[in-house]
Simulated assay, not measured.
Amino acid sequence: MGVLTGRTALVTGGSRGIGRAIAERLGRDGARVAVHYGRDEAAAKDTVTAIEEAGGRAFAVQAELGVPGDAAALWSAFDAHADGLDILVNNAGTSGRREPLARATEEDFDHLFAVNTKAPFFLTRLGLERLRDGGRIINVSTGLTHGVAMPDLIAYAMTKGALDVFTSTLAKDLGPRGITVNAVAPGVVDTDMNAGWLRDNPEAWRTSSEISPLGRVGEPRDISDIVAFLASDDSRWITGQWLDATGGALL
């Protein structure tokens, strides 16, 4: 049996990129995984199929984040398949348009915070009645909140900074229930979201590789393996922490 056998996990944005890697890893570890998606139903079904073909159990749940009623809609879809939760991974997010302060718009700012900050806040709030004692909450943050400043991603970094505060404060609040809350902070990772500026740009790939002392660009599995540790009993004495998952890029 896997270390997560008998547990149920929800991974938001679980159909692609880092989210898919997390969903598949938790499935291999024995968890029954709810794969959340916003619009790409085909990708979510592919992820569910991949988990099942590897011997795991999974189901897809749809809800667009960043719109009124998003948290309630997601939990309604989840409740149709499961009657409780053990692991919540707040992974879904958007980087929005890369714009410095001088060109930022209120519309883009509001959308970023609605998806990256407000959605996980209220998803967690509504999820607490479903989350069993001894559970896990894992928030996906970014290395941009510690030591790296990128003017073109100022609003995005702000959304994740708020998520970091949410992580540490919630950990203190939920400690009496034995629930741990931690944040994982990736650096540059080779995903579809980064394809436009990374995969097709040899110079960007070289520069991004050199940032890490390990000499390469991160892969989704690098992040999913860290999340899997935090979801397991082995992480029981870690809570309220921001874990640097940048491959040493902040050294």
Score class of each variant (00 low, 15 high):
L10H: 06
L128F: 09
T12N: 06
R216Y: 01
D233G: 13
R236W: 08
H111R: 15
T47S: 07
V148Y: 10
V148M: 13
R16H: 11
D164F: 10
L250W: 09
G215Q: 03
V61R: 13
L112H: 07
T142I: 09
G175A: 13
G96H: 06
D225N: 13
G19K: 11
T105F: 02
N139T: 07
T8C: 12
G135C: 09
D86H: 15
G178I: 02
T5S: 14
N90R: 07
S212G: 00
H146D: 04
S232E: 11
D108S: 15
D234V: 08
G240D: 09
A9D: 02
F78R: 05
S212V: 00
A195D: 12
G127P: 08
K160D: 03
T239Y: 09
A60D: 03
D225Y: 00
L65H: 11
T49N: 07
I87K: 04
V3S: 15
A58S: 12
N201K: 08
S141T: 02
E24F: 00
A43W: 13
F229C: 07
A149D: 06
A171D: 04
A60V: 04
T49R: 15
I154E: 00
P120C: 08
A155H: 05
V115N: 10
R7W: 01
H81K: 14
A58F: 03
G19R: 09
S15Q: 10
P186L: 04
